[in-house]
Amino acid sequence: MKITELREKTLSDLDKSLLSLRKVQFGLRFQLKTQQLTDTSQIKKVRKDIARIKTIIQEKEGGDEFRQSK
Rank of each mutant, 00 (worst) to 15 (best):
K54P: 08
D39C: 02
R52M: 14
K23E: 03
K23Q: 09
Q35D: 01
Q36R: 12
T38D: 03
I56V: 13
G63R: 08
K45Q: 15
Q31P: 06
Q31T: 06
T55S: 13
G62N: 01
R22G: 09
T34S: 11
L32E: 08
Q58G: 07
G27Q: 07
T38Y: 04
G62M: 03
T38G: 02
I50N: 03
E59F: 10
I50A: 04
R52L: 12
E59R: 12
I57K: 03
L32V: 02
R52W: 08
E61P: 08
G27C: 07
S41M: 08
F26K: 00
V24W: 05
D49R: 01
F26Y: 13
I57Q: 02
D39Y: 04
R29G: 14
A51P: 01
R52G: 09
Q58R: 13
L37G: 03
V46M: 06
V24E: 05
R52V: 07
E65N: 05
R29Q: 14
G27L: 10
I50L: 09
R22P: 09
T34K: 00
G62F: 03
R29F: 13
I56L: 08
R47A: 14
F30A: 11
I50F: 07
K54E: 15
R52S: 15
E61G: 07
Q42E: 14
R47H: 12
K45L: 15
T34N: 10
I53V: 15
A51S: 10
R29S: 14
K48S: 11
T34M: 08
V24L: 10
V46L: 07
F30R: 06
S41W: 00
D49T: 05
I56P: 01
A51H: 03
Q35G: 00
T38V: 14
G27S: 12
L37Y: 01
I53Y: 02
A51E: 04
I43T: 12
T38W: 03
T34V: 11
I43G: 05
T38S: 12
L37N: 02
Q36K: 09
R52N: 15
E65M: 05
